[in-house]
Design a protein around this nucleic acid. Structure first.
Length: 1291
RNA sequence: GGGUGUGUAGAUCAGUUGGUUAGAUCGCAGCUCUGAUAAAGCUGAGGUCGGAGGUUCGAGUCCUCCCACACCCA
């Protein structure tokens, strides 16, 4: 019946399970089973399809799979839709690198269409890759066929017709891009891709709603910019492009108005920005020195600390933080400011002022003669700043502090007075915007000066000649104090190598003044884990966030549906492609009516050029509409959207919100809100969580105000988790080879192991996963064959992991060994579970009701208890007949076979009922915690149960399995049936967590197959074909016996205390001891221990266990006040009680042990003491050792009689022979004969007395003394003496 | 600078409404058990619970201040 069980071989076992699932179409069967029943809605946060998965991705994906599997086993219909994040900078950057494109113009040359297709191709390629990796994790999702994704990628951009079979089974034919834009739609199934047309169009819908509420506006931002590259840079690109360079930096004076020859001294490394100076910032807390230059009596203000500050002193010696960043050769030390003035004729200190005193002083700018400085409202014009211009605005301001609390302006490298050009620097811009400073933005998008900059117009900002021109002009005006060569780390374009400049750019924003609506929605959601207080974090972010900049100056991404008229700046937002189309054709008709045929043609031509393509650049760019106010053309802005829009819309776009697909296939209202979303949280409060909450709030906006925040929420529960780190707690980096690729971990550690590591981890703490050793290459045996590098060509490396080893040692191996133990003996004994038993343990005991609406999953959802108990009718578990049987190990019970085909549980020994009862507790815990998204809670309970099963139940019951066969031996059958039930139930409970191992066990235990052949087992009994097709167990209340659990816990406690005493007194367990006495004031506890005396005797190897009223004769007692009860009664006397009460001793306090009260006098205070007011513990007496815990006292006799010594020796002897059998590789049933030799007569005496026992235990036919040891004899310790022992195998 | 949170053993973390000797796991040392267990169990060393005050009979726990760290914030 059962197949023999080999070693665990976890990893190859996982491979077989994967093929088993494929061959049997198990996942499809699971979905079919639950179709139409109660729904559980999971919404996947999209993974960026730009790289292969690492182990850090697998944590969240394990949660996703595990909870989906749990809710499937509890009978819920689900969508199983994975998501891929497709659009945005990350993909663009990789594609640019791959194609070797350096500049914006290079992209234009390559063709935006080709470029965008390449981006799509990359996404499809990595979607396929991640799909395969996820499948290896056991992640059950409605996956697309990875080969077909690759095929689509290959044909993108061609006119070839491609035919694919989509996950729902339909066959679809079309051009690649037309198929790709529909991937993941509800009629096809499969993963959603955020580049799909439906996703993009649903964002249009959102933006239209924002527009209708007046929330869209155009604003400005200052961005790092590459003139030659022609594009803006993100922070992450800047990080890549930092380089050491030198600039001509300059000291300049800004003459103060209304002061006689007094000046601010300022310093800058970017002289070109001086043309656009508007303000000067100081640190209000800093001291500023006032000096007079002897040369011309000019007075200067600058930070006092800077006077003699040795600038870049450290860098001069040590370089700039990287080996290649050394101080430039030929460049001397920088001068101090004092030195500069000394060289120019000396100076005189006139005193100091606080920065605060300088604030508000007006000064003359260095380039006030430029037209741009004189333009009202700044340049370009900002209507908010009308009435002021740069030249008239110049004054000293408070630099303030940044978000980390550091002052923006500090003494040090400069002069402590910072020149502010809000059109040329991001901090300048932020500060300037906040205080209404006019903005002067000098640069065109090619990095040259604009028209109103006089001689500078058309010159490149970063050209050295430009700096020279600045110096020349300053000199002419007498403002130049000094010029120097200054080395520093400066951002460069990673594409062209050019220096970046900061440039004011137009950007589009959503005004977030409706944040309170989003906050209300946020408060409707349950945020896990509790300790993170995610709800408050999110609310706080919502409170403080600024308006949302949604535009990106890029190529690949959502085409923002904003059409602008260049003349007036009027703009309009389109909510869908059909709206756009209608608008184009209506507008064309209007133009035609008005006789503007060429405009009409342009509109039609624009649409025709777009139709049939995806709404991406460049295809959408040609579509124009008419401004109804002016009749002029409106053109789409070139910007693409912030990628968080793409991910934020998915509660709508992936669920058929706009019903662009049949509601038969997917009805939005059935699945919204999602029951669960889960993601790695540190960054997502302001990314995905934020965007989903905002978009949902807007999408569900109800002008009449009837829709509640509760109804708007996109998900009920959010489960966040932290980061995966290496074993030392350091982040893992791709760049230094410490990031672990998914397949490296999967094939070396095993996926079940990884899953358990993730699931048992507290989600609020970082997971220290393991360590990758790049210097130790390794060949991995994957399901597709051995590999020594990843598909991307990275050599695969050894991964070590303490937590993984621990998981295997504590959980997986013990579980496997329990299973192996059972199967080994079941085969040897010919035990086979009856059909009825197999049916019982796979019983369909519950299923989610089909018609009920989904439960409000927030709060602790406890699944309904089954009202149908399994087929068996059992006696009340508390039946006194059974409660009193005191059974344990080997004592045979008079039990009967019931008519059901297995032994009734109430007829089984107490220890069987105990393990089944404990199992019910575990089942309850599992249902409760898993439904509450607390996998760690369940894992901890399961680990405890596995330990109990292995180290208590099986350990206690081994003899019941070994015992020789006896046809009527129902006790043995009861043991098999009990262990069988426990193992199958455990498989089902753990199946969502460790789906591979449990499947292997289940196949053998229930279906009698272990080879995972492709064909279904011959003996199909109508039992679930896979553990994953079983219903999740529900606790059978009739098997749950709290009292029994407590009794056993008491026995386990006594055993634990006994072991501890043996340990402390170096009394090895094999040495029998005469007696253990115990006492407990708790009668119930004492009775419980009495009942389990046999267990205790055997486990502790003690001849007699007896209950006593007290242990007064054997032990002493010590007394301590119970502060918890006495504190409230006696307050200040407690200190006294603590010292004096123990001194009273047993004579006075003894009655307390018998449950009586006493009144004592302590230093003249009369104290009433009840039994609860005093804590009693035992102290040692002669010939007995004692211990106590939890109200139980035990004492063990330490006296060794000769009889006991010989008995102990016999146990040692048996142990040694067993080891010899094991070393000789004998089978359990092989017979032997034993020979031994010893110089010490006591051994012979022992053998004479215990020879039969020894033979019985070791399956020996005889035991003989031999005059001389055989050559292969082993010298062993038997008691205190030595002997040589050897065995002869009988054939 | 503000906000939130965290400081407990060599490491990672628990620690209930304040209560006596502050726990778990890993690691280390030693021991035990093994006729399923390349497992496991037990014992031990290791802590002035970030610091200082306060409230209280009693503080890891509550309050105040300080220090350090993390995250967030125009």
């Amino acid at each position: 019946m059962f197949q023999p069980v080999s070693d665990s071989n976890f990893v190859p076992g996982e491979h077989s399970v994967l093929s088993f699932w494929t061959a049997h179409d198990t996942f499809r069967k699971l979905r079919d089973k639950n179709r139409g029943s109660k729904k559980w809605s999971f919404l996947d946060g999209p993974i960026t399809a730009n790289n292969p998965m690492g182990v850090h991705h697998a944590w969240g994906r394990t949660y996703k799979d595990t909870y989906q599997r749990f809710f499937a086993m509890t009978g819920h219909d689900q969508r199983y839709q994975n998501g891929f994040d497709c659009q945005g900078l990350w993909v663009e950057v990789e594609v640019e690198k791959q194609l070797g494109l350096g500049t914006k113009s290079a992209v234009y040359e390559y063709g935006i269409d080709n470029f965008v297709n390449e981006c799509k191709r990359r996404v499809l390629k990595f979607a396929a890759r991640q799909t395969e990796q996820s499948q290896r994790l056991g992640y059950w999702m409605d996956w697309d066929n990875p080969d077909q994704l690759r095929e689509l990628a290959e044909h993108l951009g061609t006119d070839a017709e491609v035919t694919i079979t989509v996950p729902s089974g339909k066959t679809e034919t079309g051009k690649a891009h037309q198929l790709v834009e529909k991937l993941g739609n509800p009629e096809w199934g499969g993963s959603y891709f955020t580049f799909s047309t439906d996703n993009n169009e649903t964002i249009w819908d959102f933006l239209k709603k924002c527009f209708e509420r007046g929330k869209i506006y155009q604003g400005h931002d200052v961005m790092p910019w590459s003139g030659r590259g022609g594009s803006a840079y993100s922070q992450m690109e800047i990080a890549e492009g930092r380089k050491l360079t030198t600039h001509k930096s300059v000291f300049v004076k800004f003459p103060l108005k209304d002061r006689d020859n007094e000046n601010l001294l300022i310093w800058t490394t970017t002289p070109w920005t001086l043309t656009s100076n508007v303000g000067a910032a100081v640190n209000v807390d800093l001291d500023y020195v006032k000096i007079k230059a002897k040369k011309d009596d000019a007075i200067y203000y600058f930070a006092k600390d800077n006077l003699n500050f040795q600038r870049l002193a450290t860098e001069f010696k040590e370089g700039f933080g990287r080996p290649e960043w050394k101080w430039p050769k030929g460049l001397g030390k920088l001068k101090t400011i004092a030195q500069i003035f000394k060289e120019q004729g000396g100076f005189e200190e006139l005193g100091t002022v606080k920065g605060a005193e300088l604030v508000g002083l007006a000064y003359e700018g260095p380039f006030d003669d430029l037209p741009a400085q004189q333009m009202d409202g700044g340049y370009p014009l900002d209507e908010n700043n009308l009435g002021v211009n740069g030249a008239t605005w110049h004054k000293v301001i408070d630099g303030g502090r940044d978000s980390r609390g550091s002052a923006h302006v500090v003494a040090g490298e400069g002069t402590g007075i910072v020149h502010m050009a809000p059109g040329c620097g991001d901090i300048d811009h932020k500060i300037g915007s906040a205080i209404g400073m006019p903005i002067i933005a000098p640069l065109n998008d090619d990095g040259t000066y604009g028209e109103p900059f006089g001689e500078f117009a058309g010159k490149e900002a970063i050209a050295p000649e430009t700096a020279e021109l600045v110096f020349e002009k300053l000199k002419e005006k007498g403002l130049l104090v000094a010029v120097e060569t200054y080395p520093h780390i400066y951002p460069h374009c990673w594409r062209t190598g050019d220096e970046l400049v900061f440039r004011l750019v137009d950007e589009w924003f959503i005004n977030m003044d409706w944040r309170d609506e989003i906050k209300d929605v946020t408060r409707q959601i349950r945020w896990l884990p509790d300790s993170i207080d995610g709800q408050n974090r999110e609310v706080e972010w919502l409170t403080n966030m600024s308006d949302w900049m949604i535009s990106k100056k890029r190529f690949w991404g959502l085409a923002l549906p904003i059409w602008v008229e260049e003349e007036t700046g009027d703009f309009d937002v389109m909510g869908s492609l059909s709206e756009l189309k209608e608008r184009v054709f209506n507008d064309a008709a209007v133009y035609r009516e008005g006789g503007s045929e060429s405009e009409a043609d342009l509109l039609i031509k624009g649409w025709d050029g777009f139709e049939g393509n995806t709404p991406h650049r460049p295809w959408i760019d040609g579509v124009k509409i008419r401004n109804p106010k002016t009749g002029n053309l409106m053109t789409r802005i070139e910007d693409v959207g912030n990628p968080w829009l793409d991910a934020g819309i998915v509660p709508f776009s992936t669920m058929n919100f706009n019903e662009r697909f049949s509601t038969e296939s997917l009805n939005w209202a059935d699945w919204y809100p999602a029951d669960l979303v889960t993601e790695c949280f540190p960054g997502q409060f302001r990314n995905w969580f934020y965007s989903m909450l905002s978009l949902s709030t807007m999408m569900q906006f109800d002008p009449e105000g009837k829709r509640t925040a509760e109804e708007k929420k996109p998900f009920r529960t959010l489960l966040g988790h932290r980061l995966v780190q290496n074993e030392e707690g350091q982040p893992m980096h791709k760049s230094d080879g410490t990031a672990i690729w998914f397949e490296e971990a999967a094939e070396q550690l095993g996926v079940d192991t990884m899953r358990w590591m993730y699931l048992q981890q507290n989600p609020a703490t970082d997971l220290r996963f393991g360590t990758r050793h790049p210097d130790k290459p390794v060949t991995l045996n994957t399901p597709e064959g051995p590999i020594s590098e990843t598909k991307e060509g990275v050599p695969t490396a050894t991964v070590t992991s303490g937590p993984a080893d621990e998981t295997r040692r504590h959980i997986l191996i013990p579980l496997w060994n329990c299973y192996k133990f059972f199967v080994d003996y079941a085969i040897a004994d010919g035990f086979s579970p009856s059909d009825a038993l197999r049916a019982r343990v796979t019983q369909s005991s519950h299923h989610a009701p089909r018609d009920e609406p989904r439960s409000a999953a927030s709060g602790s959802t406890t699944p309904q208890q089954s009202d149908i108990s399994p087929t068996e009718t059992v006696n009340d578990a508390g039946d006194p007949d059974h409660a009193a049987d005191g059974s344990g190990g080997a004592s045979a019970q008079l039990v009967t076979r019931s008519d059901d085909g297995y032994i009734g549980v109430s007829d089984r020994p107490e220890i069987d009922r105990w393990v089944l009862s404990n199992l019910q507790t575990l089942i309850e815990t599992a249902n409760r915690e898993m439904a509450d998204y607390n996998a760690p809670g369940f894992c901890a309970a399961a680990a405890g149960f596995i330990d109990d099963l292995s180290n208590w139940y099986i350990r206690r019951n081994r003899r019941r399995f070994w015992r020789s066969k006896d046809a009527s031996d129902t006790d043995k059958t009861a043991a098999y049936e009990t262990l069988y039930e426990v193992l199958v139930r455990l498989c089902q409970l753990l199946a969502p967590c460790i789906p591979f191992l449990t499947e292997r066990m289940y196949q053998n235990l229930v279906r009698g197959v272990s080879g995972f052949g492709v064909q279904v087992s011959g003996e199909d009994l109508g039992l679930p074909e896979s553990v994953h097709l079983c219903d999740y167990p529900l606790a059978d209340a009739s098997l749950l016996d709290e009292a029994l659990n407590k009794r056993m816990a008491a026995a386990q406690l006594v055993v634990k205390l006994g072991h501890k005493l043996r340990e402390e007194n170096t009394l090895r367990v094999r040495q029998p001891l005469a007696e253990l006495q115990f006492a407990s004031a708790d009668a119930e506890m004492a009775a419980a221990i009495s009942q389990l005396a046999d267990v205790i005797k055997e486990e502790l190897n003690i001849e007699a266990v007896s209950q006593q009223d007290n242990l007064d004769d054997l032990v002493g007692y010590s007394y301590k006040p119970n502060l918890k009860t006495l504190g409230p009664k006696y307050g200040k006397l407690l200190g006294l009680l603590r010292t004096k009460l123990p001194e009273l001793g047993d004579d006075v306090l003894g009655p307390l042990r018998r449950g009586e009260s006493v009144t004592v006098d302590i230093d003249g205070n009369s104290i009433d003491l009840g039994p609860d007011d005093v804590l009693i513990s035992t102290v040692q007496a002669e010939d007995w050792v004692c211990s106590d815990e939890g109200g139980i006292q035990i004492a063990i006799s330490t006296v060794l009689t000769d009889d006991l010594v010989r008995k102990g020796m016999s146990r040692d002897f048996v142990r040694q022979v067993q080891q010899l059998r094991k070393d000789a590789g004998l089978h359990i049933q092989d017979r032997i004969s034993i020979e031994y030799h010893s110089e010490d007569n006591i051994v012979q005496g022992m053998v004479a007395e215990w020879g039969d026992y020894i033979c019985g235990e070791t399956l020996a036919n005889g035991i003989e003394f031999a005059g001389a040891p055989a050559s292969d004899a082993k010298t062993v310790s038997v008691g205190d003496v030595t002997a040589t022992v050897w065995i002869i195998t009988m054939v």
